[in-house]
Design a protein around this nucleic acid. Structure first.
Length: 111
DNA sequence: TGGATGACCTTAA
DNA sequence: ATTAAGGCCATCC
């Protein structure tokens, strides 16, 4: 377990209900803006172990990035249960649902 | 065009 | 065999 992973896990767990974060945002908050892929990795491989709200993590386009349709629909459903509005294509209004964590390690690329 | 983004794949312990 | 860390470039806007 490395520091990045711990940070990523911590950040993901800090996402409140009804809010979402993007991969790049999490990676940047964790201190490595280039490690977006690793966020993906952590999500995919460690979510069940660390009880991470993986469904609150989406890509920067405001969409669910799931590969499989079944998991996609599941995530979509969970997001709706949390009160996050999604359109027919699964687009989420990041402007309203993006979560800004208090803990910013380094980040200078968000609006 | 250029820049940001990424739900993987591979290697190490 | 399983679990965790790390990466660099193709893709989309």
């Amino acid at each position: 377990m490395t520091l990045f992973t711990e940070k990523v896990i911590e950040i993901i767990q800090s996402i409140p209900r009804g809010k979402v974060m993007t991969y790049g945002q999490i990676a940047g908050t964790a201190g490595n803006p280039r490690a977006a892929r690793q966020v993906v990795r952590v999500l995919h491989a460690m979510s069940p172990k660390y009880d991470l709200p993986w469904h609150r993590v989406i890509n920067a386009k405001g969409q669910i990035a799931m590969k499989s349709d079944s998991a996609y629909n599941e995530q979509l459903m969970r997001l709706e249960l949390e009160g996050i509005e999604t359109d027919i294509n699964g687009n989420i209004d990041l402007t309203r649902y993006r979560w800004n964590p208090e803990i910013r390690y380094e980040w200078s690329n968000w609006v």
